[in-house]
Design a protein around this nucleic acid. Structure first.
Lengths: 215, 215
DNA sequence: TATCTTACTGACTCGTTGGTCAGTTAATCC
DNA sequence: GGATTAACTGACCAACGAGTCAGTAAGATA
């Protein structure tokens, strides 16, 4: 009979204190966006992050705390970067508007983070403080960017003098709608709408609407 | 001692088989819109309708069945009316667009029914068949109206020849956004935006963007 | 006024899931 | 390699709420 061989099994789990929170937040983002907040089970979040539910509670106080962390994490650099970009811009306001729109779509709209918008719309009523945070830190700052570009264009005589608040919202509405659509009703339809081409049309129409003189 | 007077108490409840379903659906609409589907308790729906939870189950098979009934009920006449109106219209396409927009806002946007839009966005992922129904019967028919007006204007040489699908969406996006906003993030902010004035600006900008010649 | 039908009640069950914690095991340190 | 630390596990609990059903009373009928 052979001597019993020492079989070295790989450890069943590793200690990875540093990366757990981010992995849990990634998993939570996916599931929250896919199923909604209430319908997402924390067991599933933990499982997707390759961990047990107990571990989740080592890093987050509650389900609500986890949602807050996901939302706060999701928005940081893109808006700040865009603010710097806009402030330093020297070209025409029409081009600035185009660039901002492209940056928005590339860095948020086209990424999984766009799901956060739908999430916030769905859950705003149940998390008033989170909604206020999102409104102030994300929406107002984001709309401020476009308001800046519009104001700049009007001041330079490049755009006609429209209602600034309204024009800003008109500028953002189609983008926000596209992000929301992507994560809700758009899922149930084999919709071949190309978001990039659509937003291209949007900016064209907008600039045509803002033009002092035609085409 | 007086002879015991016959005190006629009002009955504790009445039989009102006919009106119960509508009352339950009204209550459900309010609560679904306010709290979301998952967070709404059927006990509360029943209580708001002045009835017990057991009664609710006399008229609806399940919570999901109740939601379906609410959504189906919410959209019937407005779209059909608007379709008749548009088909019979003889004025300019710009005016038709204005009228359709006003009808939409007056009959849906300004009413509690606008909450259904937010509801559908939030729950689309969890109720694929309901989402498909909403998409086909509400969104496509509704967008079809605006597509008709745009096509009509382009054919008459009143509007410039834009991408029809894109223009239709651009036409609807701000209205849908306004309805969604009203029932989500708009609740947490003392937002003094006047939707009617905003949509006025929207149509103005849109028509300016569609104009063949300036002015 | 007595009888019958059925709209309605509300206390109950039971599955689900957010949250807990005593125990296990990977990793680290003498 | 034995002792120590703490990251991690997973069985468990308690609350909550969807759905049930035996019983109650409105109101119709005769």
């Amino acid at each position: 009979m052979n001597a019993p061989e020492k079989i070295i099994e790989p450890p069943r789990w590793e200690r990875r204190k540093e990366s757990r929170p981010a992995e849990l937040m990634d998993a939570a983002l996916e599931l929250f966006v896919e199923k909604g907040f209430a319908a997402t089970r924390l067991d599933d979040v933990a499982k997707r992050a390759g961990v047990s539910k107990g571990t989740l509670y080592l890093y987050f106080d509650s389900k609500e705390d986890l949602l807050k962390a996901v939302v706060r994490e999701g928005y940081v650099s893109p808006i700040a970067d865009a603010e710097l970009y806009a402030r330093a811009y020297t070209g025409s306001s029409a081009d600035l508007l185009r660039d901002l729109m492209k940056m928005w779509w590339d860095r948020v709209g086209a990424t999984p983070m766009s799901g956060i918008t739908k999430l916030m719309v769905s859950e705003a009523g149940n998390f008033p403080d989170l909604a206020r945070f999102y409104h102030e830190e994300v929406m107002q700052r984001g709309m401020g960017l476009f308001a800046y570009a519009l104001k700049r264009g009007i001041a330079a005589g490049e755009f006609r003098s429209v209602h600034l608040e309204h024009a800003t919202r008109l500028c953002c509405a189609p983008v926000v709608m596209t992000m929301i659509w992507k994560h809700s009703l758009g899922l149930c339809t084999q919709d071949e709408l190309d978001p990039v081409a659509y937003l291209q049309s949007h900016v064209d129409m907008l600039l045509h609407g803002l033009a002092v003189t035609p085409g």
